[in-house]
Design a protein around this nucleic acid. Structure first.
Lengths: 252, 252
DNA sequence: CGTGCGATTGAACTATATCAAATTCGGTGG
DNA sequence: CCACCGAATTTGATATAGTTCAATCGCACG
């Protein structure tokens, strides 16, 4: 896929959370990028690293994670097409967590200096990027509430809701109800603070209740209203533009 | 206390995470503020609100929280003297969580427009504020790992470590080992995703093990190395300037 | 000197973890 | 195309961390 097509994904992401002018889009299209294809389970940034560039995700899925003292991995967030997961590295010295691919992914690297120049010369883009990191923070807040306050069933439902809406916001949902879901149950367990066994059983319960179907790394939402309710999911924390919020999927 | 003294707390906070010039400090000292004394348990901002001003905390303690579907409250973060807890409201429409005082608190309100002008005219201050919100995000990440990945004992220990270091960073630790801790056990439970009963028992265990003493809303760290170890605490996620990181408290 | 909130205790209950084994699946080499 | 391999999923059984409920205690404050 050409660089031009990839950059459109970044633009789509930014336009799902902020208005851009035609000129802003042109500026972004001219962004110097180093595009890389990465395998699954590849560390992009490790805890303690001092990166000098940011990464833009074009295809695949990546996550932030931390390893706690007892050796268990906690996933902190997932990122999808168009996201800028480590924009905050611009303002930090050492990274406090690791960024890793979940599935084989295509990313673009942009030097910090380039991003700094971009924000200096283009206030609207600066504002959109700023807002993007604040939305990341809002997602972390929601995750604190998710792992701290909900039972296993609800946690998993909430996670599926979030991924579905975020993918929908950047046009990655087909038929109004199917999206990629390249996570293993181990990943789901690490993201929700559950054991694999219990994550498995929670997923089974969601399927048994006919809320979702999961097959071949694909999620199909069968009953959006009940899935939302199960996950106690309220889309507002994603701070999406109204136009980017998916309509309630049609039931079958 | 005079407005001038209060603003020094903000400066102290910003200087714990970013360099400021003498001119930046002067600019901050001239900031138009509306200072308010608020009682404990007071809502400063509620989920869904669209604030037009930001809040700076001078004295007391406040927290972000969300109420989940089943009615339980999850605390998302605590804030201490000098913090700007809702700086991100500058870039958001509706708030996704509620900001509430824990103890009786003194805050200063600054209009969004004033902050926007400030960041426009003073790039260093803009950068410090930006960094401050990114550190908030880093704290949320750490909390996801805390509630998702640690046992009760470790969670509570981690929380105490964080508060101790953050208070120390802005000069709120006496004798190198004592700081305010105006939290009820209910607050600690809501912050760690535990029941009150279990939070109580975890605290008892920490005391039994002679890691801390808690009395009259005051925390005394008795054994910092072991407390850190119990909480699997690594200060780097707070992204403090080296000078703001407290030395290991003297053992008694 | 009561009143009420916060801390503490005990006991019963349950959600979730852990361990270990079996099964299915996707891909790879022959 | 088949056989095989490792990884991912699933299952069952047992163990435990944490919850819930209900009562008591302590103490600051009017």
């Amino acid at each position: 896929m050409s660089q031009e097509q990839h950059v459109e994904k970044l633009i789509r992401h930014l336009e799902s959370i902020h208005d851009l002018s035609a000129r802003d889009r042109e500026t972004l299209r001219a962004l110097p990028l180093k595009i890389s294809a990465l395998p699954a389970r590849h560390d992009i940034v490790r805890e303690g690293d001092r990166p000098t560039r940011c990464c833009i995700l074009f295809d695949g899925m990546i996550c932030w994670n931390k390893t706690t003292g007892e050796g268990s991995r906690q996933i902190l967030s997932f990122h999808v097409s168009g996201d800028l997961p480590d924009l905050h590295s611009l303002h930090f010295g050492a990274m406090d967590s690791s960024l890793q691919t979940i599935s084989p992914s295509t990313v673009g690297f942009v030097a910090h200096d380039v991003v700094r120049a971009l924000t200096k010369d283009h206030p609207t883009i600066a504002s959109a990027l700023w807002r993007s990191t604040l939305i990341d923070a809002a997602i972390f807040r929601e995750w604190v509430a998710n792992v701290g306050g909900r039972k296993a069933y609800g946690r998993v439902a909430h996670l599926l809701c979030e991924l579905f809406v975020r993918l929908a916001a950047v046009g990655r949902v087909r038929d109004g109800r199917r999206c990629e879901l390249p996570l293993t149950q181990n990943d789901i367990a690490d993201a929700t603070g559950l054991s694999v066994v219990h994550a498995n059983r929670s997923l089974q319960a969601l399927r048994r209740d006919n809320l979702v179907r999961i097959d071949k790394a694909e999620l199909e939402v069968l009953d959006w209203p009940r899935l939302k309710e199960a996950g106690d999911f309220d889309v507002s924390y994603l701070h999406l533009n109204a136009a980017a919020i998916p309509p309630t999927p049609v039931q079958i």
